[in-house]
Write a protein that binds this DNA or RNA. Structure first.
Length: 275
DNA sequence: GCCCAGGTATAAA
DNA sequence: TTTATACATGGG
């Protein structure tokens, strides 16, 4: 991989095993939207327009100072081709799933944003989740040349449920406030949680009202890069009761969370497979 | 209009 | 410990 400066940002060449639509639209991140020949959106506190041309990843808005940030964000140091090969040998349906969307990578998102996003995700659909998060950023994020960052826990901790009415998140507003107050108040230290063993970390996150095992595991997988976490939502339960009957999450190995994401995406686009 | 969504809190069995 | 139900909202 080589990273060079361009007129409007940076170029990372030699990028393998990455599809922007598959990675940004597979239900792990909610702040990127298709724009022209790429995607426009935000990661952490950075706005960017991102496009992929063969094996060159162009990040408009990026600077050489954040080159490591973007390599980390797209998890470019992990060999996904090798992982897919391992996954394919585990189960024939998983083999189909990795062939269906071989460009999925698990992003390294901001832990607080991931926590909030998946609190919002409960009993909700992806299109609407995106809308709620967009309104959350527009109303309470910090504006910097037209871009609204994801609001901090500190900012949201000062609000109440009525203040959040503008984002129309329904019953989840109470959960967002509780999460913000526990994180801002130091009762939950997301940095410390990310260093804990998985079971301990999950229990810690579940101290937040509105955070159950699913939200906790999504937070750990997408916001803390704990790749062994295996979020069990309704689709995955169906998959584990159907084609993967008899298997347990840990049977998928140390990167079970990544395998889970391939299965999840495949099952959503091919619901008949899972009945 | 109807069905349902990357679940969880709460109550009841 | 397991199972049933309410929950706010709106996309398809």
């Amino acid at each position: 991989m080589e990273i060079t400066k361009t007129k409007s940002g940076i170029k990372i060449s030699g990028v393998r095993d990455l599809s922007l639509p598959e990675t940004l639209c597979c239900g792990q991140a909610f702040r990127f939207v298709p724009y022209e020949n790429g995607f426009s959106g935000g990661a952490w506190d950075k706005k960017a327009f991102i496009r992929l041309d063969n094996d060159c990843l162009y990040i408009d808005g990026g600077t050489l100072a954040d080159k490591d940030f973007w390599c980390d964000y797209f998890d470019l140091s992990l060999d996904y081709a090798a992982l897919r090969k391992e996954f394919a040998a585990i189960h024939p349906i998983l083999s189909e799933a990795v062939r269906y969307a071989p460009g999925i990578r698990v992003l390294r998102q901001n832990p607080w944003e991931a926590l909030c996003s998946f609190i919002i995700s409960q009993n909700n659909n992806i299109a609407r989740i995106q809308g709620i998060i967009e309104r959350l950023c527009l109303n309470f994020g910090d504006e910097k040349d037209g871009f609204y960052s994801f609001p901090t826990a500190q900012k949201l901790s000062l609000l109440n449920e009525e203040d959040l009415a503008v984002i129309r998140s329904g019953f989840r507003s109470r959960y967002i406030i509780d999460a913000a107050r526990k994180v801002a108040g130091g009762e939950i230290d997301l940095c410390a949680v990310s260093l804990m063993p998985t079971d301990e970390a999950r229990a810690e996150l579940m101290k937040i009202c509105g955070v159950g095992p699913k939200v906790a595991d999504c937070t750990m997988l997408f916001g803390m890069h704990k790749l062994e976490c295996f979020p069990m939502d309704v689709w995955m339960k169906r998959a584990m009761a159907g084609p993967f009957k008899g298997m347990k999450p840990q049977d998928f190995g140390a990167y079970a969370g990544i395998a889970q994401q391939y299965i999840f995406h495949y099952s959503r686009k091919n619901p008949e497979i899972f009945k």
